[in-house]
Every structure is written in structure tokens, then in C-alpha cells.
Design a protein around this nucleic acid. Structure first.
Length: 424
RNA sequence: GGAGAGGUGGCUGAGUGGUCUAAAGCACCGGAUUGCUAAUUCGGCGUAGGGUUAACUCCUUACCGCAGGUUCGAAUCCUGUCCUCUCCGCCA
């Protein structure tokens, strides 16, 4: 959610931003309604003030005048109720419109309609592997080593679910161990989060759980939803809290399962583990002061690069174009790993994403900070970034580290957790 | 799951229909005083919205878990709901 005052005062910038982001939002109508709302608010407050004055006098006036005063009080309260009702109706309308207005955009983010406009800005340390054999994809490799079982997943939970088995499980745990310990050393607080969250938390982060095209599984007859990412629970952890400026930046690294319906994704290239209904993810999350968020965003991106360099997986970094940012992000970087088994001769596939959401989520979640010696509070900035999404990391890891006989080399950093240097 | 108790400012805690504009204490900030590892004393000290201003400057409204209701008037009465604690039951 943008600051309404900001929208009113920067209408043209907000409109242009909506155009860049490919979002239809009626900014002029928001402003008109907001002006009307403020007038109604002032009107209602005035009625209320008068009613308070009358009420305060009732105890003091002679008994025979009480009824007359009560009548005046009733009339004033009725007027106030009407103004309040009008105000609330306007408020709901404005909120509905505001929910569609995306965050403002970093001036350096590439402008464009979709991911074709994304800008490659860096490559990882590991070169794209040149195999002198026909590369297998992770499904073939998984079958060879009995690591992934989609058939059993379908029997138990339907298409898009799977079992990891044998060395895939060791890899899943090793990736989590490696990444969490790596981040803990950098001052991130490890957190194991709930895998469900209340609907209002989802809204605050920017998800719409009960719409027709929702990505979210909801639990019937409750306000609970399965989380699509630990970003939801980590951000929600501090809903309605006031942080001390000196404790910022507050950096968390959370582990959760992630559940996604993938509604509307049918037909998109999504073989195997690439697009699934459940996976495990380690997520970074930061609460910062406004002037820290850009630097922390670069830090999150750098950490993602470190992790994939350490896993010896080739990748490129992409600066996401305006049309592909989603609502809350002010700027977003994706890491795309090389996946040799995708397409005819390998393709890039998204493995991480890190966003600076500035105060867009914090405003909706009401997460503030206070500076010692200063009056008032301000909204914190929030940032998130994938440390490792296990399913996609497994694809990249298995496919890039395969040998001609289908054996899979274990990257050095994972060997201590796996206890061997290859899967064969 | 059952029974009971309770949610009041940063914290402790008083307040059972109208000067609550929320007592008092602690903590914190500023001043004064005496001097020595501190004490005494005076004052200040919440958040948000709207209006106003050179200025958190002044005015105003709301907020006692949350949402409704009763009333001229609600922290206080009523209903619902969430959360916390205690005991019992069940359980990894």
C-alpha cells in the first residue's frame, strides 16, 4: 500500500508508474474520493465535538432541562453517525482502489512490459558446463538414482506433488544446513516458521488468498492459509509492532514449506520439479530503516550469488523490468541458474528472487520503528530474498554436476553434510 | 477438548456510567540543589488521522485486546471474538 498523502501529492508520478508497471489504476478517482473522505471526516468530527460538549453539560444543567439536552445530544449523534457512515463507505472504496496501485519503482529498474525486458547485469563464477555427452534432465537422473517419485506423489496428493528419496533427501537437508549456517554467521537470525498464516497477514504481504486465480491454498472454515513462502510468516512476525531504530537492520533467515496452487500455470514449460505444489525454501527477510534498504537489497543479492557460486552452479543475475515486478516490489533481482536439461540444449531458469518492498508491506502490516529522542514513528522497510528454494536448486545442482555415466558430483561445500563426494 | 481467571500507557498497576483530559509507582528526558560511585526536588514524558503553522506550533477527533450493541454520555454495562495464564484430559 502506498501512502495516500503521497498519492495525492504526486499524482502524475504515480500514474506514470502505473503505466510502466502495466497496471490499470484510476489515480484521479482515488484522489477525488480521498478529498471527499477528508471532508466527511472533518464533518463527522465536528458533529462529534458538539455532541461531546452537550453530553458534558447534562450533569450540570437543572433537571428540568435534561430532556431537552438529551434530545440535542441524540440529534447530534445521529448526524455524526451519518457522516461516519458516508466516510466509511468512501474509505472502503478508496482501499479497494489503492490495493491495485503498485509500489513506486527504483529509477534504475528497466522499463518494460514483461520478462523479455529484464536486464542481465551479472554472471556467476561458474561457467556453463560443456558436456561431451547428451545431458540428462533431473527427471532421468532422479530415476537413475531413485531420488524423486512423482507417481507416488500423485497417488497421495495429486499431480504436482512428489516424494524426495535417498540422496535427494540428504541434499535437501544439506542445502538447508549449508545455507542457514552460512547466513547465521552473517548475523541473520535463524527462524523456523509456521507453514500456515491468517488471511490478513497474506494481504499485508501482498497475496490475495481467496480470489479465483489465487496461488494460495486455504483451509476450509478457518482464516488459515498454507503459506506460499516464509516471506509471509517472517513479515507477519512483526505485524503491529514498533521496532527500535537501533535494532535495525533486523535480518532473519526462515525455513518453511511453500505451497502453491499454480492456478493458470498449466501448459507452461514446467517439467519435473520446476513448478510444483509444495517445496521447502530457506528465505531471507530484513526489516530496515528507509536509508538502509537499498544497501541491504544489494547485500541480499550478493548473498544469493555467494550461495550459488559455492554450489558451483552457473547463473546470471537479472534486474527485473517494471512490468514483471509484482505489486509490492520497488526493485527486484532474480538469479537464473543454467539448467542443462531444460529445452533442447539447456535454458536459464529462475532459482531465487530478492525484492526491496520499501514501506509498501510495512504500511499494510503496520510495522514501524521509533528513533530514540525523536517523537513519532515511521514505517520500516522490508526486503526478502530466496536463500535456497530446494526444488529448483536440486534441478540446477543435479543437471550441472552430472557426469557421462549419470553420476552426480556433490559440490565441495555440501560434502560435509552428505558424507560423500558423489551420487552414483 | 473441559473448567476457571484475566487482557488498562515502555513496564507494574488503580479505576464498576459523567471534571478519565486515566491515579500512583518504576523507567526515561530536561532543570535546580546538595556533593561523590549517588540522593533530593521541580517539570516533562503515548500513538494515529484531520485542520493549522515559520515550527510537533496550535486546534480537534479517535484509541483502555479486537468488533458490535445499550446510553445524551462507556475503560466501566451487554453480546461476540481473539489472545494470555492456571488446573484437568489427550498427545509427538
Amino acid at each position: 500500500m502506498l501512502d495516500r498523502k503521497y498519492v495525492v501529492e504526486n499524482a502524475e508520478a504515480v500514474k506514470l508508474n502505473c503505466v510502466h508497471r502495466g497496471v490499470q489504476a484510476d489515480v484521479d478517482r482515488i484522489i477525488a474520493l480521498e478529498m471527499e473522505r477528508r471532508a466527511k471526516l472533518a464533518e463527522g468530527e465536528d458533529w462529534n465535538r458538539q455532541a461531546n460538549e452537550v453530553s458534558a453539560q447534562i450533569g450540570k444543567v437543572p433537571a428540568e432541562q435534561r430532556e431537552e439536552y438529551k434530545e440535542r445530544g441524540r440529534a447530534l449523534r445521529a448526524s455524526k453517525e451519518q457522516s461516519q457512515k458516508d466516510h466509511d463507505a468512501l474509505e472502503r472504496q478508496i482501499e479497494g482502489l489503492m490495493a491495485r496501485v503498485p509500489n513506486m519503482t527504483h529509477p534504475s529498474a528497466p522499463i518494460g512490459n514483461d520478462d523479455d525486458a529484464n536486464l542481465e547485469i551479472a554472471r556467476g563464477a561458474t561457467p556453463i558446463p560443456q558436456f561431451d555427452f547428451k545431458a540428462k534432465d533431473h527427471l532421468e537422473l532422479g530415476q537413475q538414482h531413485d531420488m524423486i517419485d512423482f507417481e507416488a506423489g500423485a497417488r497421495v496428493a495429486g499431480a504436482g506433488f512428489y516424494f524426495l528419496k535417498r540422496d535427494a533427501v540428504l541434499l535437501e537437508l544439506a542445502l538447508q544446513q549449508f545455507v542457514v549456517s552460512h547466513l547465521a554467521k552473517k548475523g541473520f537470525i535463524p527462524v523456523s516458521t509456521p507453514d500456515v498464516a491468517n488471511t490478513d497477514i497474506l494481504h499485508g504481504i501482498g497475496f490475495n488468498p481467496r480470489g479465483p486465480e489465487t496461488q494460495i491454498y486455504s483451509i476450509e472454515n478457518t482464516e488459515l492459509n498454507l503459506v506460499a513462502t516464509a516471506e509471509i510468516t517472517l513479515g507477519g512476525m512483526y505485524q503491529n509492532q514498533v521496532l527500535e531504530a537501533e535494532q535495525l537492520p533486523l535480518k532473519l533467515v526462515g525455513i518453511s514449506h511453500c505451497f502453491r496452487t499454480e492456478a493458470g500455470a498449466a501448459g507452461r514449460a514446467s517439467r519435473g520439479l520446476y513448478r510444483v505444489h509444495q517445496f521447502t525454501k530457506v528465505e531471507m527477510f530484513a526489516f530496515t530503516l528507509p536509508d538502509q534498504s537499498s544497501a541491504i537489497h544489494e547485500e541480499l543479492r550478493a548473498i544469493e550469488c555467494e550461495i550459488f557460486d559455492a554450489l558451483e552452479i552457473p547463473f546470471r543475475v537479472v534486474d527485473t523490468a517494471t512490468g514483471d515486478l509484482g505489486g509490492p516490489a520497488y526493485r527486484k533481482y532474480d538469479l537464473e541458474a543454467w539448467m542443462p536439461g531444460r529445452g533442447d540444449a539447456g535454458q536459464w531458469g529462475e532459482v531465487t528472487s530478492t525484492s526491496n518492498c520499501t514501506d509498501y508491506q510495512a504500511r499494510r502490516l503496520n510495522i514501524r520503528y521509533r528513533t530514540k529522542g525523536e517523537k513519532g514513528t515511521h514505517f520500516a522497510h522490508t526486503l526478502n530474498g530466496t536463500a535456497v528454494a530446494i526444488s529448483r536448486a536440486l534441478i540446477a545442482l543435479m543437471e550441472n554436476h552430472q557426469l557421462s555415466n549419470g553420476s552426480i558430483k556433490i559440490p565441495k561445500v555440501l560434502i560435509p553434510w552428505i558424507g560423500k563426494d558423489r551420487i552414483q
